[in-house]
């Protein structure tokens, strides 16, 4: 279960128990929050679609149908299709190791996983540039062997993997820690191999947390700008992802196209939020069902001796 979902559940639980007399303060706070969200989130979002459609639906579709934009969309999907599965596998492995085993250096590993969150994406991009660029440490050697990372798709993938690296692991660690190892151990005592235990016991018990992490990871993989920008080289039709394309179009004073592409990203974001909310709702239903276990049916009479022979 994600921390967010849990606290939301808690918030729902405690609703109605707060003091009623704080009516004025409550109205003020809610009003301030709504005003803030409207000005800083809703209006810009509406504006994206407004600007994109300012010159009519036809211009909007034409902007989306530009070959360079389509290439950028394809590249974005490709990068996500590589980065997300990689980080899913990595995230599950890391969360598994951290939640289920005791070992030296565990705290350090957790810190390392958080590193991409702590570091500016631009810096992350620069690190790779310094490592793999032609002026960098490994660049000339790689180039001699025909491998290009900087200003290439592989560099974009690398940067995206780095930036989206913590999402799945971060989401899964608390879930796996809460689940404990009893179910896995039970499977082992019943003769199941580690592999079977993973697929049939571990994975199903963390599926909501995993999906949640994957969704967030995917959203970030598609939306990443900073790190990708440093490594991409902005070659139109080749190394431009959707966010880079938006940036480029905007700087070319092609506002309609820029906002049209931006609206694509906005749709992805809205879709992500929708799926995320749905998953949280599913989780809560699972919790509610688990809660009912407390008021489970009373024990029936135990079988008598005659019954079980």
């Amino acid at each position: 279960m994600s921390g967010a979902a849990k606290s939301r559940l808690l918030a729902q639980r405690t609703r109605g128990h707060g003091p009623e007399e704080g009516g004025l303060a409550r109205r003020f706070l809610i009003g301030a929050a709504v005003l803030f969200l409207t000005v800083f989130l809703v209006l810009p979002l509406v504006n994206v679609f407004w600007q994109a459609l300012a010159k009519g639906g036809r211009a909007y579709l034409a902007a989306l149908a530009e070959p360079d934009t389509i290439a950028a969309a394809k590249l974005t999907l490709l990068v996500a299709a590589i980065a997300v599965p990689l980080n899913t596998v990595f995230g599950v492995a890391a969360a598994w190791a951290i939640a289920k085993f005791q070992f030296r250096g565990k705290a350090f590993l957790i810190t390392l996983i958080d590193l991409p969150f702590a570091i500016s994406p631009v810096v992350a991009g620069l690190i790779y540039l310094v490592l793999f660029g032609m002026q960098g440490y490994l660049g000339p050697w790689l180039d001699a062997h025909g491998i290009r990372i900087v200003f290439n798709v592989s560099g974009i993938v690398l940067a995206t993997v780095f930036v989206t690296f913590p999402f799945v692991a971060r989401e899964l660690i608390p879930v796996m820690q809460a689940t404990g190892t009893d179910q896995e151990q039970a499977a082992l005592t019943l003769g199941a191999s580690g592999w079977r235990t993973f697929w049939q016991v571990t994975l199903p018990s963390v599926k909501w947390g995993l999906l949640y992490g994957v969704i967030l990871c995917n959203a970030r993989a598609m939306g990443e700008f900073g790190a990708v920008s440093v490594l991409s080289g902005h070659i139109a039709g080749e190394t431009d992802t959707l966010p880079l394309r938006v940036d480029k179009l905007y700087h070319e004073f092609n506002a309609t196209s820029a906002f049209a592409v931006a609206s694509l990203l906005a749709v992805i974001a809205l879709l992500t939020l929708f799926v995320k909310t749905y998953l949280e709702w599913q989780q809560q239903r699972a919790f509610a069902r688990a809660e009912q276990a407390g008021s489970a049916p009373a024990d029936n009479e135990l079988p008598t001796r005659d019954d079980w022979l």
Partner: peptide, 10 residues
């Protein structure tokens, strides 16, 4: 039934 639908003894 699923485990959460059972009583402790069950």
């Amino acid at each position: 039934r699923y485990p959460h639908q059972l009583s402790g003894g069950q």
